[in-house]
Every structure is written in C-alpha cells, then in structure tokens.
Amino acid sequence: MINIRFVEYDTSHFGEFIFDIPEGHDCWLLLLTHTPAVFLVDNEYRTYNSNSAVLYKPNQRIYYKACSDRYSDDWIRFDTDENYVTATPITCGVPFIIQEPDYCHNLYQLLVAEDILSNKYKDISIDNLLRTLFNKLLESYHCVNISPLYKCLNELKMEIYRKPNSDWTVANMAERLNISAGYLEEIYKNTFGVTCMNDVINSRINLAKKYLLYDHYSISEIVNLCGYRNTEHFFRQFKKITGVTPNRFRNSPFQRNHLEENQN
C-alpha cells in the first residue's frame, strides 16, 4: 500500500534555503535534486552534485540546504508497508548520483498527475510508478562508477536506436559529446558493455528485420533505409548477427514469430 501525502516536481527556492527537521517526518521522504546541495551525513556537512537522490525513512533527521543562488528538486512524502521500500538496500540519508535524471523526473511528473486526477486505478498506477522509480534508483545505487557524461551517453544511445540510418561514425559521435574518439569508445563500452559502433550495427539490423517482415521494400531499398551504402556489407553484417541471409529471414515463418515474441 502506498499513500502519498505530498508530491511535487521542479520546486525551487532561493540561495538561503535550509530544510532542517531534527526529528524527521513520520513518513518516508524521497528527494531528487536538480541543483548542487549540502546534506548532513554522518554529522558532517557534505556538498553533493545536482541529480542526486536521497531517501529518508520515518523519524530520521533531515537536513539539506542550497549551496548556490538557487535550490531545486522533486520530492515525495509517503506512507508505505511495501517491501521494495521498507527493505530497500539504499542507505537512507546518504545522497547518490542518478544515472537517468530525466527519466526519474518524468516519473515524478506522472506521480503528481495521478495524485491530482484521482482516476479509478490511481492506487495501482501510483504503486507501479513508484516501483519503477525505485528500480531506476537501484540501478544507479549499484553502479560503482557513473561517468559524468552518462546523461549524454544515454541520449546518444537512444538517438542511435531512434535513427539507425543516420551517418554514424565514431568521429561524429565523439564530436557531438566534444570528446576524443578514443575516449568515447572507452567510456561507451564501460557504460553499456558494447561499443558504440556495435550499437549502430545492432540498431540497423533490428530495423532491417522489421522492414523485411512487415513492409514490401526491396532488399536494395532496405539497404538504403538502414543507412548502408554497400549491399554486400549489409548482407555480411546481417548474416553475422542473425545467422541467415536477408532473403531467407524474410521467407521464414519462424523468424517472424521469433521477432514478434521478442517485441511482446
């Protein structure tokens, strides 16, 4: 059961802002900061970067303040007996960097909407949204080394899969992030476990599979639509990844069923 007491996003305060509750709240508090802030941790005042999350359990001391001319955050105060909160491995009262701040921010916006609108399935929706939010926080919490460029890398990866037919090269991807090509290859592989060019290839082959099964494009048209300039190169990469030629893939009912199962 989840009972939201208050939930807000994009709250903002001037630089003299201080939030100090020695006895804590009688409920849970989860913050996601948009600006750097000072938190009291282990009786020390420590500065944490923006895009940090911190979870306070009921009756735990709460202290944080602005460390610049403005402080902004998303926050939710709630009651719950759900195990994913009460038994979370996240250390309460200690901020940590969020891998996907925009994603988490969107979840806060949806939580606010559900809380305000009070639709028929409000309770189920709020529980699902909060579970997803905690899952995303756990992903960040268990990530030992988060690159300062993680947000940019994540946006790049999403762009690769949205637009696989773009003229992707390591050089132009590195230029987008204003870093060297060698550094991009290193941090991309460390972050996602795959090279950026392998992601480009996978995104193009995934798109080719859909065109082969659900559209009436010729092979030469698919080659161009998927960003290839050379048919032989396309055939070679397609067979290496799928184990069959594009023509055989198109004519195989098993491949169609397999693709549909993966999409579902």
Rank of each mutant, 00 (worst) to 15 (best):
L117V: 10
K189R: 14
R248G: 02
Y64Q: 02
F235E: 06
L107H: 00
R204M: 04
R61V: 05
D10V: 07
C27Q: 15
E16S: 15
A66R: 03
V7D: 00
I219D: 04
R204H: 06
H105K: 11
N128L: 11
C196R: 06
L184S: 04
T191V: 12
L184H: 05
V85H: 09
R61D: 01
V7G: 00
T86M: 12
E232V: 14
K210A: 08
S52T: 08
K210V: 10
K57E: 11
Y150T: 01
G15F: 09
R162L: 15
N83G: 07
R236Q: 10
Y183M: 10
P246W: 02
C196K: 05
F96Q: 01
K65L: 07
N83I: 14
T245V: 12
L184V: 10
V223E: 03
F6T: 15
T132S: 09
Y217R: 01
P89H: 11
N106D: 05
W75E: 01
K209E: 04
S125P: 03
Y64K: 02
T47L: 13
D73V: 02
L133F: 09
T231I: 13
Y45M: 10
L107D: 00
P89G: 07
E114T: 05
I90Q: 01
L129K: 04
L259Q: 07
F78E: 01
I4F: 14
I222T: 00
Y45N: 08
K136E: 03
G243L: 12
S68T: 11
A37K: 06
N172K: 12
I126D: 00
D73C: 13
K136G: 00
